[in-house]
């Protein structure tokens, strides 16, 4: 029988994969892609909780989270285009404009 904790553990595994991607990849676009994996892990946990607790508020929250993800990606990709245009790189280690 599949219970709530099965879904939560699957969501945690997905979250950890996205986290490892965030930490290890240095390409700015791949960083945004890892953030999408993190969003998906959170959405999965929310929907699973919504199903097993028997109310729909979690699914409404997933709707808002998807909207925020769409807004974040559009601005983030615009920033990635700016990085390539001005600094000629997508490597996040080479973007040091705010270091001091």
């Amino acid at each position: 029988m599949i219970n709530l904790h099965h879904y939560l553990v699957a969501s945690a595994a997905l979250f950890v994969i996205g986290f490892v991607g965030m930490v290890t990849r240095r390409n700015a676009i791949l960083l945004l892609l890892s953030i999408e994996i993190l969003f998906n892990a959170a959405n999965l946990a929310l929907v699973a909780a919504s199903r097993y607790l028997g109310n729909l508020n979690g699914q409404i929250l997933v709707f808002f989270s998807m909207t925020v993800a769409a807004a974040e990606v559009s601005v983030g990709l615009a920033i990635a285009i700016l990085l390539v245009r001005h600094l000629k790189t997508l490597n996040a280690d080479e973007v040091r404009l705010l270091k001091w």
Binding site: N3, L4, H5, L8, V9, A12, A13, F15, V16, I17, F19, V20, V23, T24, A49, Y52, L53
Partner: peptide
């Protein structure tokens, strides 16, 4: 380092999440 940190995070999360019984 990244994979190590991920494994630590997973080993912390999974025992906690396994306790949830709805």
């Amino acid at each position: 380092l990244g994979v190590g940190a991920g494994l630590v995070l997973l080993s912390v999360l999974v025992p906690i999440l396994r306790l949830t019984a709805a």
